[in-house]
Amino acid sequence: MAMTCKEVWKEISEYIDDTVTPDTRRELELHFLYCRHCAAIVDGIHNIIVLVADERTFALPAGFSSRLRTKLQNHL
């Protein structure tokens, strides 16, 4: 039986992480073919993950390492 949207939402995270079983993957992808809402959720989450994982999003401030060394030098 085809998956409902609610069932799909529970699996979306693991689908993106590629940790679902091949059978579940097939069922999900079948669902995405006809459910634009769920397909859009997967694409949206994927894009968010790509953006936050980009090193520019949480970049270390310039000079961080040298200031850390200076601070530690007083205590080591």
Partner: peptide
């Protein structure tokens, strides 16, 4: 989840 329409492109330049 809210219904927000499609967003298939990766907006990498926005970063």
């Amino acid at each position: 989840p809210q219904s927000l329409g499609d967003w298939r492109e990766i907006p990498s330049e926005t970063l």
